[in-house]
Simulated scan of single mutants.
Amino acid sequence: MPRLPRLTGAATAALALGLVTAAPATGDEPLVTDARIVAHFDLAGGQTPENIALDRDGSADLTFAFARQVAHVTPDGSTRIRATLPAVTDRATPLVQSPVVTGIARADDGTLYVNYATGTSETGIWRLAPDGGAPQQIAALPADGLPNGLALDERRGMLYAADSVHGTVWRVPRTGGTATAWATGAELAPLPAPTGSGYGANGIKVRRDAVWVSNTDRATLLRIPVGPDGAAGPVETRAEGLNGIDDFAFPGHGRSVLAALNSGSKVVLVRADGTFSDLLTARDGLSNPTSVAVRGRTVYVPSSASSTRRDPNLHLAHLRHLIGRG
């Protein structure tokens, strides 16, 4: 989740949302081991990692929010820039002022999709072809919104973008086209001022026949069923009290979630019954984590350093076992 700029130039602010500490597996054994930082990034250069998509070989593609970049990071930490989104002159991005690259999703064929928020007509979903080339805008989203998390439903051929300002989940065909307001409502909206920060719907994932969304201001994790006709069903609240929640990931075959808690510099395990416990914390090297990804038993956590202003990085840890349907 992008945060309000606090420095000038490319170093202004960073996208965020979080991590926590260690949830016991059995007895006193931690659920995760071998926690380590594999890559450090340049805060002054705007390399504030906001979101993550994984490749089959264990490498990761990260959005560097304020650098307007998509970076490729190998498991040993080697980093190269895949693409830079075009500069915007009349920028007026809600909440953050600067143009930011936020959510990212990867298709099976290697195509990457990213959200770009600028406050201009360039706001929307952009596509990066597997063989390189310049990023291409495939759908426009409201210039006065802030598209944050992004998810791809490969089976239905749909992209879902969570708009933090409008409290809306936008749906766009994977091939591009007109965005539709797929889901709205108070559950997705930010809290009104002065109580709220302006960040409502934030992280988003597709899970079987449902779209899951986090709401930062309301500290909730939500589930929205996808009907047979593709329409959104009633919003279900699956967990509450997740202060500072950003994006999240499913670590197994069930409904348990690993969620990044940005403001607390934590990642937590959220169980199917809504209870949660710490998995990773600042003691492990987290610095305002923004998202989580899981491949096999490896957990990936980008940290944006949005408020700590210290060490934006990519963190890896190992799950002792896969998390089932609990």
Rank of each mutant, 00 (worst) to 15 (best):
V226R: 04
S265F: 08
A231V: 10
N215E: 11
A249V: 07
V211F: 14
N262W: 01
G230H: 11
S256H: 09
S265N: 15
K266Y: 09
I245D: 09
A201P: 08
A239N: 06
A219I: 02
L221E: 03
V211H: 15
A219P: 04
T216K: 03
A239S: 09
S214R: 07
K205D: 14
G252S: 02
G244S: 06
I204A: 14
V257N: 09
R218E: 11
A249L: 05
E240A: 05
Y199L: 15
K205C: 10
G198R: 09
N215P: 12
R207S: 14
I224S: 12
G252I: 08
P225C: 13
G200Q: 10
L222Y: 09
A259E: 01
G230P: 00
K205Y: 02
D209Q: 14
H253M: 06
D229F: 12
K205L: 14
A201D: 14
A259N: 03
G203M: 06
V235W: 02
L258Q: 01
L258K: 01
L222F: 10
A249F: 03
D229C: 10
A201T: 04
T216C: 04
N262K: 00
P225N: 08
V226F: 06
R218M: 05
E240Q: 13
A260S: 13
S214K: 06
R238W: 00
G200F: 07
A232W: 05
T220V: 06
K266L: 13
L242V: 03
G203N: 10
F248Q: 02
V213P: 02
L222S: 07
P228F: 07
G264I: 01
G241W: 05
A231D: 15
V206F: 09
R218T: 15
V235N: 00
I224N: 10
G233E: 06
S263L: 11
A259P: 04
G198D: 07
R218I: 15
